[in-house]
Amino acid sequence: MSLIVLLAYWYTYSKWYILGSWFITHILNIAFKRLWLSPLLINALALIVLFVGIYYKLIEGQEVGASVLNVYMPIVFSSIIMNLLIFTIRKIRIKLKN
């Protein structure tokens, strides 16, 4: 599966997870002022929810792979990409001020 197909698949089926991840990442960035902390917290929470679902057999068999692909990966990936964009914009603003 190419990256473009994967991104299209995520947008089609996981857009609410991605939008929620961006919102929570934004809230965590405001709260903690550290760009590296919010993706770690979001990743930890997503893993906990995934493992709880597996432990209590809410997610079984092929649903585990689909859950990782459609829920976990878009959440973490979008949070990381958002913070990389914020980091890049901040660096550009600092260079433009000087």
Rank of each mutant, 00 (worst) to 15 (best):
S67L: 03
R90S: 09
L50P: 03
V49G: 03
K97L: 14
T88E: 06
L45C: 11
V71P: 00
Y9C: 06
T88I: 12
I89V: 14
G53S: 10
I42Q: 07
L35D: 09
K33D: 11
I48H: 06
G65P: 01
I94L: 13
S38E: 13
Y72E: 04
I59H: 05
I92M: 01
G20H: 10
I81M: 12
S38V: 07
V71Q: 05
I30K: 13
W36M: 12
L3S: 11
L45S: 14
R90N: 14
W10R: 07
L40S: 14
S38A: 15
L84C: 03
G61P: 07
S79H: 00
L6T: 14
I30D: 02
I18V: 15
F51C: 06
L35G: 13
V64R: 08
Y17S: 06
L58A: 12
Y55D: 12
L40T: 14
Y13H: 12
N29V: 02
L47V: 11
W22Y: 12
L69K: 03
I42E: 08
V71R: 01
G20R: 08
A46F: 03
E60L: 14
L7T: 10
R90F: 07
Q62M: 09
S14F: 11
N29P: 03
S67T: 15
I54A: 11
L35H: 10
Y56C: 05
S79M: 00
L6H: 09
K97A: 13
K33M: 05
N98W: 11
T88Y: 08
L3F: 15
M82P: 00
L50G: 03
K97E: 14
S78W: 00
R34Q: 15
G65E: 04
F32Q: 01
I48Q: 02
W22V: 11
Q62F: 09
V76P: 00
K95G: 00
I75M: 05
I48P: 00
K91L: 09
K15I: 13
I18R: 05
L28V: 04
G53Y: 03
H26M: 10
L3P: 02
I75D: 00
K57G: 12
G65S: 10
K95I: 02
Y55W: 13
R93Y: 07
N83E: 09
L96W: 06
W16R: 08
L7I: 15
W36C: 09
S14E: 08
V49E: 08
A66T: 06
Y9W: 12
E63Q: 14
I48R: 02
V68A: 10
A8H: 11
N43W: 12
I75Q: 00
K57D: 15
I80A: 05
L6I: 12
S2I: 05
L47W: 13
R34I: 12
G61D: 11
P74C: 02
H26D: 06
S2H: 09
Y56N: 11
Y17D: 04
I30Y: 06
I30F: 04
Q62G: 10
I42H: 07
S14P: 09
F32E: 06
